[in-house]
Nucleic acid binder design. Structure first.
Lengths: 178, 178
DNA sequence: TCCAACCTGAACCGGATCTTCCGGTTCCGC
DNA sequence: GCGGAACCGGAAGATCCGGTTCAGGTTGGA
């Protein structure tokens, strides 16, 4: 593979990542090409069709996100602190994107499915641990928390310090009253 | 107008209301027709085009929502209690729908615009009052709270007692610490 | 009974996207 | 440098999808 081709492929992936994270799914091939400073034809040189492109992006993003979560979960800081970091990094591009792509209708291939399941498991465990530790309110089920992350935090255009993320995080903290 | 025609019109409106609230904008004419147990042609007998149908639904829903908010705001209960009820009723169909329709791209006609502005104003005033009263955390701007309502509570398929609504509401409460 | 109003749903259309394709360009080993 | 294989650009073509129409059958009500 020629050096410029490799460079272009990377540009495509990086740019698609950005665009999906920013605007959700539904960005067109044309937009991605323009963003990467290339022609559409070039996208098709590197990926047989849109689906393949999307799949690569999704897998990349999920892999990255998974690594991040795994690393955070392995720390031995208080679970709440870890959870707060998880929220912060969930609001960043990679995961907002994964969620957006999940809606693309594509039945994701086995690899991505397995990864997704693993990540969900890690998140639920983290929530349970935080609840046991007493730092997170206990009247929401772990799956609900994961859903909340998906619905409120991992939305296109989210930022870790926007009002909604802050409010959700505070809302999940154990309140002294209950 | 024949009796069955009137009946059908009502069915269309009711069903479109449901579908938009449940699935967001983007439900097709076909879907609405099927849901109402009618053919597409019938929709076009009652509305010149999709835009007109959507506009009627949106106006109806917003009018209803506005009336509800106005009534709540006029009570002299503590502002926090009122706010909690606003959240609850925002999670119900009418408003989830208004927000969904706002994204339809249609420049809304003057009437709806005015109504929307009025409602937003009422909401912001309510937030300010609750903050002054000390029941709502003061480190979020009123506009941010309105945005949060829009993003987290008024989403298609929301329910007043789902986890996200509860968490957001708690997250907005004044915490003794700050 | 009669007919105007009404309903149905398959076919039609427009435009937004994806995909192809070939002339022109760029890299890289020799 | 040179040659040519690999690569790129972007207009043209193919597809998809949902809104819209309309000819033909049905129904309410005087």
């Amino acid at each position: 593979m020629r050096a410029d081709a490799r460079r272009n492929r990377e540009r495509i992936v990086a740019c698609a990542l950005d665009l999906f994270a920013e605007h959700g799914p539904g960005v067109g091939m044309e937009d991605i090409a323009r963003g990467a400073g290339l022609g559409v034809g070039t996208l098709y040189r590197h990926f047989p069709d849109r689906r393949a492109l999307v799949e690569e992006i999704a897998a990349t993003a999920l892999r990255r996100y998974g690594a991040r979560i795994r690393a955070l979960a392995a720390r031995d800081d208080p679970r709440w602190d870890v959870f707060a970091e998880v929220v912060a990094c969930s609001a960043e591009q990679p995961f907002a994107l994964v969620k957006a792509l999940a809606e693309e209708g594509t039945a994701p291939p086995a690899e991505r499915n397995a990864l997704q399941r693993e990540v969900d498991g890690l998140l639920r465990d983290l929530v349970r641990a935080a609840q046991r530790e007493g730092s997170m309110r206990a009247d929401v089920r772990p799956e609900e928390v994961v859903d909340i992350l998906g619905a409120a935090v991992c939305r296109p255009g989210a930022r870790a310090d926007d009002a909604l993320c802050r409010v959700v995080l505070d809302g999940l903290r154990r309140r002294d009253g209950a």
